[in-house]
């Protein structure tokens, strides 16, 4: 099952400079594990341990087919073949 994942500039060090990579998984969580297999280190940049459970990092946005995953189940958001996933770090500061 192929899912296109768009990688932001800051994370392209994990993808040999590729702007997009392919991955697979029935949920966002499974997709991230799959990406980690091919691009070691990337998972750590996307998720963090929050009081015992793993969650998306606060300042990382992930979209499935243009929907912010925070509104569709977060790491449990479902994925299907042909979906497009976009990862964008928040543009934020103090």
């Amino acid at each position: 099952m192929a899912i296109e994942v768009r990688i932001p500039t800051i994370l392209r060090t994990y993808t040999d400079g590729a702007k997009a990579v392919e991955g697979s998984g029935g949920t966002l969580s499974a997709l991230i594990d799959d990406l980690e297999g091919n691009h070691p280190g990337i998972k750590e940049r996307l998720v963090e341990d929050k009081s015992g459970s793993v969650d998306l990092r606060r300042f990382v946005n992930v979209y499935i087919n243009d929907e912010d995953v925070r509104f569709i189940g977060g790491l449990d958001a479902e994925l299907a073949d042909g979906d497009q996933v976009v990862v964008l770090p928040a543009v934020a500061g103090g």
């Binding site: 979209y63 243009d66 925070r70 976009v86 964008l88 928040a90 543009v91 934020a92 500061g93």
Partner: peptide, 29 residues
């Protein structure tokens, strides 16, 4: 004391820049 782009607008911005072969040359606040 804080700023953050709205997540939906952020996606729209990056898709638009992508379509135009642009990048954020300046990020200001």
């Amino acid at each position: 004391t804080f700023y953050e782009f709205d997540s939906t607008e952020l996606l729209a911005l990056y898709k638009d820049m992508d379509a135009r072969d642009e990048e954020p040359v300046v990020v200001y606040h």
